[in-house]
Every structure is written in structure tokens, then in C-alpha cells.
């Protein structure tokens, strides 16, 4: 949720009162715990991760250097490419759902009510642990006893194996996570809509512009920067899909939900191919880095029209 703020090029202002010397010693004391944590659990593992990606380590024996073999294997690994494809499919589905639903809801709230209770209730699913929501939806979507299938049957439709059919599994997982995240997205977009000056709407209403037209002609264009921010945040977030897949489908049916995070996890902890998993993880870092870079460029291109 921070990427957007990075584009602001702020430099910390001069230290409090002007002093002749810097605050080196004091700063070190202030920073010590964080520096230790960063060195031990971010820098050191990053170096080790990069090293493991060049080895055949299997968690048990000593890692042996194999050069770029893992990367060569990765390029030829159909499951890796499949996992990227499946992840992309998921990202498009879930981000699409979140943003379309979030926009709609935010627009409705913006025009109808300022109720805090309503907003708090909408955000409840976001606070539910993802494991819990996955379990809950696994039950709601159950092929035999699930509530949703009762609903379908009572409407005269057929039972669906939402999580067991290769076609429906990924959309179902995407919907589960969209259920969790839409309330959050709605609040972000709603906050953005509050920034649009009320007079613009009043003027439009005087001109006889309908609510729907107002949404497409006023709200949406002025919301662009926040939409871009929400897009970045939910995109990066969605790439890291793990919990819902680990609980509901375990990558199946027939690899339909074997997303890249889950694939890495399986290689590392089910097949004990730590070296290969590290190579996969490092590749994901590069892919996400590239994606973030592209998005930041896009973000920069979408400054607010209100400023």
C-alpha cells in the first residue's frame, strides 16, 4: 500500500535545530534494532536465497554448486510457465472484480450515505483471516451440501463443483479473495471520491446531467490517480496468492490453480527442491520488479486533474 507514495521525491528535512556535527551516534542507537533485524532477516536471506538458486540443495544434504542449471530447467519447465499463466489469469479476475465492484459500491455510498456503520461492516470481510475465508467459502461452495448449490438448485439450476471443476476453480478462488478485498478497495475509492469538490456535481445536476453520466464524466476521470494506486496495490498483492489455494484446491484440479507462489512452496517443502524453488522465487522477484517499474511509470503519467 506504499508504492504510490514512493513517487513523491521527499528528502527528510534538515535535522531539528542546526547542529555542527551530525547525530551519528544517536542515530545508531535509534536504528540498532531495525538494522539488526534488517541484516539478519532481509539482507542475509536475500544473499543466501540468491546462492541457493545456484545449488541443488534439498534441505538435507549440503548444497552443491550447479551454476545456472536451475534457471535452465526453469525456462524449460512447463509447470512454471503454467503457474505464471494461471497467476496472471487469477490476477486479472480478482483485480477486475475488486475494482468494478469497489467502484460501483463506492459510487453508491458517495451519492447515498456517509454512514460509518455501513463502511465498518463492509470492511469486515477484509479483516477475516484469509485461511478462514477460504475454509468458509469451501463450505459455501461445497458440491453437495454447500449453500450456493442449494441456491442454484432452488432456482432450478444444476449443482456445480465450484472448486473441483477445472473451469470454475480459478474463478471461484478469485471470487473468494474478491469477497475479502472488495470492502477495502471500496473504502479506498470512496476516500478518493470525497476529494472531488461537491460543486462540480451541483453544477452538473443544474445542467440536468443524470447520476450515471456524472459518474462516467466526473467521478471516474477525477479518480484516476487513486484508481492507479489501487491497481498497483491489488496487483502486487494478488501475485502472492497462496492461502486460499493451499486451503481449497491445492493447485488442482489439473494444475488449474497452481499459482506461482503455491508452485514455489510445493517445490521447496513437498519436493524439497530448495535450490530450484529459490531460482523460481528470484525469478518472481524480477518479474514483480519489472511490473512495479512499469506501473510506477504509468502512475506518474496519471497525476490528478484536481491539483
Amino acid at each position: 500500500m506504499t508504492t504510490a507514495t514512493l513517487t513523491k521525491t521527499e528528502t527528510a528535512g534538515a535535522a531539528l535545530p542546526r547542529r555542527r556535527r551530525g547525530d551519528g551516534r544517536v542515530a545508531l542507537a535509534f536504528l540498532a534494532p531495525v538494522l539488526i533485524g534488517f541484516a539478519a532477516f532481509y539482507v542475509y536471506p536475500a544473499v543466501r536465497g540468491a546462492w541457493y538458486s545456484l545449488t541443488d540443495w534439498n534441505l538435507l544434504s549440503e548444497p552443491g554448486f550447479v551454476g545456472l542449471d536451475n534457471y535452465a530447467e526453469l525456462v524449460r519447465d512447463p509447470l512454471f510457465w503454467n503457474s505464471l499463466k494461471v497467476t496472471a489469469y487469477y490476477v486479472v479476475l480478482t483485480v477486475g472484480m475488486q475494482i468494478v465492484l469497489g467502484l460501483g459500491l463506492a459510487a453508491l455510498m458517495h451519492r447515498l450515505t456517509r454512514s460509518l456503520v455501513l463502511r465498518s461492516l463492509l470492511v469486515v470481510p477484509w479483516l477475516v483471516p484469509s485461511v478462514t475465508s477460504a475454509l468458509l467459502w469451501m463450505w459455501l461452495l461445497d458440491a453437495n451440501l454447500g449453500f450456493l448449490n442449494h441456491l442454484l438448485v432452488s432456482l432450478g439450476l444444476d449443482n456445480q463443483g465450484f472448486l473441483t471443476s477445472p473451469e470454475l476453480a480459478m474463478p471461484s478462488v478469485a471470487a473468494i479473495n474478491a469477497w475479502g478485498a472488495t470492502g477495502y478497495t471500496t473504502l479506498l475509492l470512496y476516500a478518493g471520491m470525497l476529494l472531488v469538490p461537491q460543486q462540480i456535481y451541483e453544477a452538473a445536476a443544474l445542467d440536468g446531467t443524470g447520476e450515471v453520466r456524472q459518474f462516467f464524466r466526473i467521478t471516474l476521470p477525477l479518480l484516476r490517480p487513486i484508481l492507479a494506486f489501487v491497481l498497483v496495490v491489488s496487483l502486487i498483492d494478488s501475485f502472492q496468492l497462496f492461502d486460499a489455494v493451499a486451503v481449497t484446491t491445492k493447485g488442482g484440479p489439473v494444475d488449474a490453480t497452481r499459482v506461482v507462489y503455491y508452485y514455489i512452496y510445493e517445490e521447496a517443502f513437498t519436493h524439497f527442491k530448495m535450490g530450484y524453488a529459490s531460482a523460481l522465487a528470484l525469478s518472481l522477484v524480477l518479474i514483480l520488479g519489472l511490473l512495479t517499474f512499469v506501473q510506477m511509470r504509468l502512475l506518474r503519467a496519471s497525476r490528478s486533474d484536481l491539483a
Binding site: 536471506p45 536475500a46 543466501r48 536465497g49 534441505l59 507462489y261 522477484v285 514483480l288
Partner: peptide
């Protein structure tokens, strides 16, 4: 700030090993 961009799974594997 750069570390913000690194997906957690990359450090998770070595951290588990550690």
C-alpha cells in the same frame, strides 16, 4: 524502500532454513 518490493517468499525460504 527497495526491500518493500521484494515478495516475501524470496526471503521466506532462507529464513526457514536459518
Amino acid at each position: 524502500v527497495a526491500a518493500l518490493m521484494v515478495p516475501p517468499i524470496f526471503t521466506l525460504l532462507p529464513n526457514f532454513a536459518l
